[in-house]
Amino acid sequence: MQAEIDAVDYSVPPQELEVRIARRTLARVYVRGSGVEVGAGTRPWPLPLGTSCFYGDVLDTEGLARYFSATGSAYEGFIDAQTFAGIPDQAYDFSLSAHVLEHLVNPLGAIEAALRVVRPGGIVMFAIPDKRHTWDNPRPVTPLKHLISDYVTGGEDTRIDGCLEHIRYLHPQWAPPIPEEQHQEEAIRLANAKFDTHYHTWTSDTFIEMIEWVEENLGGSILHKELVFNENIAVLRKNV
């Protein structure tokens, strides 16, 4: 899809406006050519004029309309953000995602996959919520050693743990608490259904720790890192 406009809607609340302007500015600085964005939903990354982007998701148009309770999501075809399966190596100049990695059981593996599908010198840019400024605030921070373990194993062995955190810390924010004696059974049920929740959490400090590990181990050099309101944004360049 050809990028037609990189304008920002100034009618949104000030904190949301701050995020959108930051994303647009970073895209203007770093994004060129053709790329891919996964999980854009109703808020695709504002892109510079003259770029093109393929928008992929694990949900189809109808599924996205139900998920966001609104139509108009950016969607052109299926892409699994965890693996980018089916996309050739070095197919794009850039890869984007915002508030996607926290939904995956293996975030480091997903970053590695995003680096795989961009060309040498290409850009991988992503935003992850900072738990201190979202409904994830009551939850413990995911340590780097947990993320590395998920990278090594694929992450499925800790999916139940993520569901347990959802039951203990997130579910009571919206519904009556589940009795503690039922937590394990309910977590297993949710994990088997591959329940959509945040499986990991970050603060700005642990986010930086993670992307520094990526720089040392996965072949992406850090060009930019920033906390903007409730999200941490990183820009990586694939090493040549």
Rank of each mutant, 00 (worst) to 15 (best):
1 M>S: 15
4 E>S: 12
7 A>D: 13
8 V>E: 04
10 Y>Q: 11
11 S>V: 02
18 E>K: 15
18 E>C: 08
22 A>W: 00
22 A>K: 11
27 A>K: 01
28 R>C: 12
28 R>A: 07
29 V>Q: 13
32 R>D: 08
34 S>W: 01
34 S>H: 10
35 G>T: 04
36 V>Q: 03
38 V>T: 12
39 G>V: 03
41 G>Q: 07
43 R>V: 09
44 P>E: 07
45 W>I: 01
46 P>C: 07
46 P>T: 07
50 G>E: 06
52 S>F: 00
53 C>H: 02
55 Y>H: 13
57 D>E: 05
59 L>R: 15
61 T>M: 05
63 G>P: 03
65 A>D: 11
65 A>R: 14
65 A>C: 04
66 R>Y: 06
66 R>S: 12
67 Y>D: 07
68 F>T: 03
69 S>L: 08
70 A>Q: 14
70 A>M: 10
73 S>C: 10
73 S>M: 02
74 A>T: 03
75 Y>M: 02
75 Y>T: 00
76 E>R: 02
76 E>G: 13
80 D>K: 07
81 A>S: 12
82 Q>G: 15
84 F>A: 05
85 A>D: 13
85 A>G: 13
85 A>Q: 12
88 P>E: 13
91 A>V: 02
92 Y>A: 11
93 D>P: 01
95 S>N: 04
97 S>H: 14
98 A>G: 15
99 H>Q: 13
100 V>M: 10
101 L>F: 14
103 H>T: 00
103 H>N: 12
105 V>I: 13
106 N>E: 02
110 A>H: 06
111 I>S: 09
111 I>E: 06
112 E>S: 11
113 A>S: 15
113 A>I: 04
114 A>Y: 02
119 R>Q: 13
120 P>H: 02
121 G>I: 09
121 G>C: 08
122 G>K: 09
123 I>W: 05
123 I>V: 13
124 V>E: 03
125 M>E: 03
126 F>P: 02
128 I>N: 05
130 D>N: 15
130 D>C: 13
131 K>A: 09
132 R>A: 11
132 R>V: 00
133 H>Q: 11
133 H>R: 14
143 P>R: 09
143 P>A: 08
146 H>E: 14
147 L>F: 08
150 D>P: 00
150 D>N: 14
151 Y>V: 10
156 E>G: 05
156 E>Q: 13
157 D>N: 15
158 T>Y: 01
161 D>H: 11
161 D>C: 03
162 G>P: 03
164 L>D: 04
164 L>P: 02
168 R>H: 13
170 L>Y: 09
171 H>V: 08
174 W>S: 15
177 P>D: 09
178 I>C: 08
178 I>K: 07
179 P>H: 09
183 H>S: 01
183 H>Y: 09
184 Q>P: 00
188 I>W: 00
190 L>V: 10
192 N>D: 12
193 A>P: 00
194 K>Q: 14
194 K>C: 08
195 F>I: 07
196 D>R: 11
199 Y>S: 04
201 T>R: 12
201 T>M: 05
203 T>V: 06
208 I>F: 06
208 I>R: 15
210 M>K: 03
218 L>Y: 02
219 G>L: 02
221 S>P: 00
222 I>C: 06
224 H>I: 05
229 F>Y: 10
231 E>H: 11
239 N>H: 04
240 V>Q: 10
